[in-house]
Structure formats: structure tokens, C-alpha cells
């Protein structure tokens, strides 16, 4: 589904990603871990098309298409979804109005008719249950005055509404208490199918108790330096990142 080859990216001239290689198939969950500043969020941003990052080398093929050639909105319309680490507050735009605009633009790109108000509302009601989000919250301005947990739940709610093929969760667990973490993970697990894939970017192993990955990759200095199964995450939880840093820095010196 997704094939990343030798991906290099930099911001304002300083390189952050230094040759990422990653293959993701439908039905898989990949966790990306790593110490602070290793490039995890940059990878998520580059895949979603954030303009500040400049891709200097490499390619990303998503379902046969050159992802890097597409605008952020076209990536979303093709089925890529980024759950933001810091969801943006947008005063004056209600979640409902925003989502209806988004869904109908995606549908129009795919040659589908727009959803009418009735169908849209019933879809919304169905998906709201999944992340236990209150309708009142959705009639308010998008994310404005939401708590951290509400913002993250709203991200997963949007994901449920848009039904992406590839979901990238950028530190969705950061700052969540255990109840919110359960709700969010439950939502993500519920949306998982054999046809879609998930990339979970996280700093904490705890999330992976709830969203169980098929593969775990450790990012360090802009490269994947170690890959394994969920046992690797447990090992990291126990030993920290120092041993990996030593391994990598030792061989490159």
C-alpha cells in the first residue's frame, strides 16, 4: 500500500530525515518510536504534505501513485489521514460544517454524489458513538476551547467519518489519561480492517498495549535504525533508547 524509499527531508536547510525506507501492506499496523527529535513527527508531516518540509531525495508511492506529487488535500482525498499531534483550533468554523465540507469534497473527488443533510447526520451519529463524543462539542467551533482529550477524540472522530485507507496517528496518545487513551484506542481498533493500514507514531510504549502493532520501528537521527515486533517496544520500555543510540553512534563513528 505504502512504499517509502530512501526518503530525505529537511526544514529550512537542516536535514531531519536521512533515508527512510518502509513498506506497509494493507491490514498492518506499524508503530514508529524513537527519542525526542529523531524525526517521527517530521515523517508524519511529510507524508501528509506539510509545506514547510522540503523533500530532498527519495520517493513515496501510495497505492501506485507518487504521493509527494500530490497537494495535501489530494492526499487526503486519496485516503491518507493524519491525526494531528496538536489539532488546530479554528474559531468560527463548527466541526459539523467543517466535516460536511470535507466529506463532500472528498466524495466529489471520487466521483460520488454529496451526502445530503439527513445522511450526513445519521453517519455522524453512528461515528460519534465510537469515540464517545458529545454532539454539543461538535456544534461548537472546531477544537476551540476543547480539552486535550477532546481534541484527540475529535481527531479519531474525523478519521472515522473520512474512513481513510492509511491513517497516521502522530503522538495521539501524548497527554491523554488512561480513560481517554482507552476511548481513542478503541476507536482506532474498531476502524482497523484488512483493507486499511495504520502508522502509529508514539513516544510511549503504553499506547501499544491498546493498539497492538504488527511491526515496531525505531527512528533515530532521521533513519530507521531497528525494526522488530511488539517485543521491541517492550524492550525499549524496559531499557530506554540509550542502548540503541550507542549501537548506532558506535557503528557510525
Amino acid at each position: 500500500m505504502l512504499s517509502i524509499k530512501n526518503l530525505h527531508a529537511s526544514i529550512e536547510g537542516s536535514p531531519i530525515l536521512n533515508g527512510i525506507n518502509l513498506e506497509i501492506k494493507a491490514g498492518e499496523v506499524h508503530a514508529i518510536m524513537g527519542p525526542n527529535g529523531s524525526g517521527k513527527s517530521t515523517l508524519a508531516s511529510v507524508l501528509a504534505g506539510r509545506e514547510e518540509y522540503e523533500v530532498t531525495q527519495g520517493e513515496v508511492i501510495f497505492q501506485g501513485k507518487d504521493l509527494l506529487e500530490l497537494s495535501p488535500e489530494d492526499r487526503a482525498r486519496e485516503g491518507v489521514f493524519l491525526a494531528f499531534q496538536y489539532p488546530v483550533e479554528i474559531p468560527g468554523v463548527s466541526s459539523t460544517n467543517f466535516l460536511r465540507t470535507a466529506i463532500n469534497q472528498v466524495r466529489s473527488y471520487r466521483g460520488q454524489d454529496p451526502l445530503d443533510a439527513v445522511k450526513f447526520l445519521s453517519l455522524m451519529k453512528e461515528k460519534m458513538k465510537l469515540v464517545e463524543i458529545d454532539q454539543k462539542l461538535l456544534s461548537r467551533s472546531l477544537n476551540e476551547g476543547f480539552s486535550g482529550g477532546e481534541k484527540k477524540r475529535n481527531e479519531i472522530f474525523q478519521m472515522a467519518m473520512l474512513e481513510p485507507t492509511l491513517s497516521i496517528l502522530d503522538e495521539t496518545d501524548s497527554g491523554l489519561d488512561i480513560d481517554a487513551l482507552r476511548v481513542v484506542s478503541n476507536g482506532v481498533n474498531h476502524l482497523k480492517s484488512k483493507d486499511n493500514a495504520t502508522i502509529v507514531v508514539t513516544h510511549y510504549q503504553r499506547l501499544l498495549d491498546y493498539i497492538v502493532p504488527d511491526y515496531v520501528h525505531v527512528l533515530y537521527k532521521g533513519r530507521i535504525v531497528k525494526s522488530g515486533t511488539k517485543d521491541l517496544a517492550l524492550e525499549l520500555e524496559e531499557k530506554g533508547y540509550d542502548w540503541i543510540k550507542e549501537e548506532v553512534d558506535g557503528t557510525t563513528v
Binding site: A48, G49, R50, E51, S71, P72, E73, R75, A76, R77, F81, L82, F84, P87, V88, I90, P91, G92, V93, F98, L99, T101, A102, I103, Q105, V106, Y109, S141, Q158, L162
Partner: peptide
């Protein structure tokens, strides 16, 4: 810009995203 990217990342085209933000 951050709000623009957020809207675009949900599939809303650039012009529409701009209009949505200005009107809000």
C-alpha cells in the same frame, strides 16, 4: 497557515479552505 494545512489535510481544497477561514 497551520489552520489552512489542517483543513487541507482533511480534503478541503485550498480556495475553499481560505474562504472558510476568512468567512469565519
Amino acid at each position: 497557515e497551520e489552520a489552512m494545512f489542517y483543513l487541507q489535510a482533511r480534503g478541503i481544497g485550498k480556495e475553499q479552505a481560505r474562504a472558510l477561514l476568512l468567512f469565519a
